[in-house]
Amino acid sequence: MHNATLKSYITGFILSIILTLAAYLAVMNHMFDGGVLLTIILFFAFLQMLVQLVFFLHMAKESRPHWNLVMLLSFASVIFIMVVGSLWIMHHLNYNMSPMQMNNYLLKDEGMRK
């Protein structure tokens, strides 16, 4: 935090506003199709997280050894496994276990009827 400068905060603030508005406008105007739109706004969110980590929390200016960064990355890997794993498992659980949903999926994805 000690190497903070005004310029860094202003840059971060402006970039954050731009990324927020870009994601917002893309959604409000339905600029892209479902999957592409989701990928784009998630990418903007990720980018804004990096912007705030660098310009607000000054992660890039941390002196060696980069313990804060190491903690962030190890927690990020745990979070990735937990979130992606939960979604993956629960999606397949829905797909395979619930009779009503399974019919919907079969109808929608495979073009089959019960």
């Binding site: 994601a23 917002y24 959604v27 409000m28 339905h30 479902g34 706004i41 903007f44 969110a45």
Partner: peptide, 14 residues
């Protein structure tokens, strides 16, 4: 909040 804004609100509307 960036992620709540994106994942909860924006993705809910998309």
């Amino acid at each position: 909040w960036i992620f709540i804004f994106t994942i909860v609100y924006l993705m809910g509307h998309a």
